[in-house]
Amino acid sequence: MRHASFIARTVFVHNNDVEAACRILNRILGREDILDQFRRTRFFEKPFQFRRRINFERCKAIYNEDMDRKIQFVLRKNRTDPYPGSS
C-alpha cells in the first residue's frame, strides 16, 4: 500500500537531536514488524524455515498471553486486603 510521502514514516527533529529522532523512527519500524519483514525478504525463506518460524511464533504468543495474565493476576489491585499474607 502506498502512503503519502513525507507524511508516513516521518519523524521531526527537535533541537537538532538527530539521534533521538532516529531512535523513535527505528523503534516504530521495529514495533510494526517492518524491519523484520525487510530482513526476512532479503533471502528466500525455505519452507522448513517458514514452518519452524511460524510454529515458534505461535508458541511464543501463547506463552506471552499466559504470562501477561499471570502478571495481571499478581498485580491486581481491587482486593479487600491489598497485600494478603503480609500483615
Binding site: S5, F6, T10, V11, V13, N16, V18, L29, I34
Partner: peptide
C-alpha cells in the same frame, strides 16, 4: 539543519 527524517525502505509482504 535536518527538519525531518523519513524512512522509505521498500518492504513487501508478498514479494
Amino acid at each position: 539543519e535536518i527538519v525531518s527524517i523519513t524512512d522509505n525502505t521498500k518492504v513487501s509482504w508478498n514479494p
